[in-house]
Write a protein that binds this DNA or RNA. Structure first.
Lengths: 225, 225
DNA sequence: CAAATTTAAAAGTAATACTTTCATTTTAAT
DNA sequence: ATTAAAATGAAAGTATTACTTTTAAATTTG
């Protein structure tokens, strides 16, 4: 993606944060370095105290932006889904051929991200890494239903719906567009995780290029034809 | 499944526990009631203290069986995978037709379990519920690689490999048997979760019978044909 | 029945996840 | 440039958690 759109910012549902972290220097430092620190320590051992120390700030200051680390994680996850949505739209824009649109959509969602300068202070490559490791913990809580009502997952919903429409557009008689859309989006993350930590449960070789994308393209086009 | 085999017990890797919970009355009570309590409270709010109170025992006694709640969860998850493996083998045993074998395998893995008397003190229906909600938390830790080396996930591995062989047997030229096998096993759990908590992201109606099974059968057979 | 093992009760420790208070700095408005 | 408002930092405080230790009582086993 180009740096032309570098003034773009992704909008995250207000209820997720106390004070908008994109609105201040400290807030942006919190986002930038929390990704680094979560990657280093893992979500379990990551604390606001450690983060504050890392950015030469104070625990209580971090708490003024996010209620707790769970909410910070929800913020980062929303950011990630928003970014995927943006990629999806950008890459399929102005394309006529329905098969081509679906092909490009699958690539946008399943490819391994490289550092991308579009949104300045977020390192997309590193964010992808922590999403792969940690995202399901933020979903799978006792309070999902309540959090869902609060709109915490609205960006994910939009992403799934967008992809499902592209699927349905390609094959209008397919019965499971939403289910397949979910399967691709979440399955891609899961396969990344398995490929990293359970090599023997993966069919891919080190030399394969974007094997996860290839798997899902094969799966989807065979399934929809 | 019948109750004929009620004396069967599933073998769980030794390293997961300190003292085998299947070997004593207290141990079995720990397993039985931990499932209930995790379901009630969610894994986050579940503590050994609460569990001990529920079974009229003591915190320190529970710690003599499991190092911590993470290990208890790994035990329950291994038990679940072991149970799926058992179902898979039992249901496909003596069947000749390769397509039929694969069909039955998909059912065994993706169907919604009912209370099954095969293994006495474990409520399979309730276990399935907590696996759907919580299992990915036990996978996605900073220590996966180490835990993997310790053999904590060996039963999962066996299950994935078994299903992948059935897939490959049905279509020997298919390139991604392991990846597809993982996608089905983990995807089925994920779809259960979505169906429960994100109804609008699901194509299924309340009246559909075993829609998740149908989705995966459609996906796999279209993809392998 | 005696010895070995298991369990219960209670108290203790270190870390975590916040909260509160108050002083200081920064920013924004006139 | 002055002042009020807002944001930040430092430090101390609280409740809970996750686990450990010790000792005594109960249970099992040989």
């Amino acid at each position: 993606m180009s740096t032309i759109l570098s003034s773009l910012t992704l909008t995250i549902p207000e209820k997720i944060y106390i004070k908008d972290p994109q609105s201040s220097k400290l807030g942006r430092r919190i986002l930038e370095y929390s990704i680094q620190l979560i990657r280093q320590e893992g979500l379990e051992k990551f604390t606001f105290k450690k983060l504050a120390k890392k950015i030469n700030s104070n625990e209580s200051s971090v708490y003024r932006y996010f209620e707790n680390k769970h909410m910070l994680m929800l913020y980062l996850i929303s950011w990630y889904w928003g970014w995927l949505e943006y990629k999806l739209v950008f890459r399929t824009n102005n394309i006529e051929d329905k098969e081509d649109v679906l092909k490009r959509a699958i690539i946008a969602i399943t490819e391994t991200p490289r550092r991308d300068e579009t949104f300045g202070f977020i390192n997309e490559e590193e964010l992808h890494y922590i999403i792969v490791q940690e995202y399901s913990k933020a979903f799978h809580t006792k309070d999902v239903d309540e959090e869902n009502e609060n709109g915490y997952f609205i960006i994910y919903r939009r992403l799934v719906e967008r992809l499902s429409k592209i699927i349905l557009n390609y094959n209008p008689s397919y019965c499971y567009p939403l289910t397949l859309s979910n399967t691709v989006i979440q399955g891609a993350l899961k396969q990344n995780f398995l490929h990293q930590h359970f090599k023997h449960l993966s069919d891919f070789k080190e030399t394969d290029e974007e094997p996860i994308t290839k798997f899902f393209q094969n799966l989807i086009f065979n399934s929809l034809k």
